[in-house]
Amino acid sequence: MSVKELVERYCRTSKLPHIWCPGCGNGIIMGAVMRALDKADIDQDKTVIVSGIGCSSRAPGYMNFDTLHTTHGRALAYATGVKMANPDLNVVVLTGDGDCSAIGGNHLIHAARRNINLTVVVFNNSIYGMTGGQYSPLTPTHSYATTAPYGSIDRNFDLCKLVQAAGGTYVARGTTYHTRQLVDQIVAGLGHNGFSFIEVITQCPMYFGRKNKFPSAVDMLKWQQEHAVPVKAAAKMTSEQLAGKFLIGELYHEEAPEYTAVYEKEVIAKARGEVK
């Protein structure tokens, strides 16, 4: 499918060009999500895209599906309601690092714990972009932000580890540089019957970049290229070699009972006296 066909099919073309800054990775991720939905051959009329608040969360407005732009941090709570009410819908959640790990952190761990079939794509640009560049729980320690003028002293989350520990059953990390792999990770997440979580390392040249000595989006993608280590390659590397790097690829995958299916099979069946 050509870019033109992709955009015409999966975008609300009258809303484009989008509001994101030049070089912002959000458009790359939204493109990867559309390509993945296409590759996974989903039913466009049975797919709901849910987001919270922030730069990333503007994505659903451009996407030609049923779309729900909720309140800050709460995308997963709304998405849980959508999926519970109608498990036949594919529910994709697009969120940002601040949205899903700070104000929405509680919903993230509990949605993962339930293993409800949602596909979550986190646009991790390490900053609050919409409000002008404040540090988030994913801002690397010692990075600068408007609210961390002397460098952030907070330790940042490893969100993938968090989600895995909470019970998420498909966990992957990608980048906006490794776009082809990113599409495949999202395809795998869409196909996984359970809570799928794809963290995407992306660039905010406007706020994170400027404060942290990245003159352009290109420099930020080069940083991704140099610091991302595929899981398989990492297995053969020493901890010294891995210092300062981050892993990409499928980080965790297990098959486990999916929440809405269990509700049908156990709760409804027991309540109706069909099983004991």
Binding site: V3, K4, L6, P17, G27, I28, G31, R35, L221
Partner: peptide, 11 residues
């Protein structure tokens, strides 16, 4: 170039 264009501007 297509995959990495944030603006769907190149095909």
């Amino acid at each position: 170039c297509e995959l990495r264009c944030p603006d769907y501007a190149i095909s």
